[in-house]
Amino acid sequence: MSSVPDDLRYSKEHEWVRVDGETATVGITAFAQEQLGDVVFVELPEKGARVRQHSSLGVVESVKAASDVYAPLSGEVLERNVKVIESPELVNSQPYGDGWMIKVRLADKGELAALLSPDDYRSHIGEGSAAAGD
């Protein structure tokens, strides 16, 4: 069972979002990293870049797969996680912690409405709500 923390919002493309005021932290979910396998490479936008909701913001790669990371929200990149670029295994070991990818200054808080709740995301990945946390 994949971990789906209750304090986050999710996209259908398996990104998670933690909103703190005007800032959102973005990463990929435990489910996504399990599907990918051992992550060997992460490519993220530079600080100051603008990302648009639903468009690709970067790439995560395992040995045999490459997957786009889609921006769950639009905004300006305030910071990218240099640690995850240097140590891509953090995406596997701490997807909701040190494996985060970028922090974004939200352009439109209204976009949050398009994101999934933890329960919705659990059913999206085919796991009942009983699977919450682990």
Binding site: F41, E61, S62, V63, K64, A65, A66
Partner: peptide, 12 residues
């Protein structure tokens, strides 16, 4: 670095 290659990335 095989994710650059056609057998994984196909049209990309």
């Amino acid at each position: 670095l095989q994710t650059r290659e056609q057998h994984i990335r196909r049209e990309k």
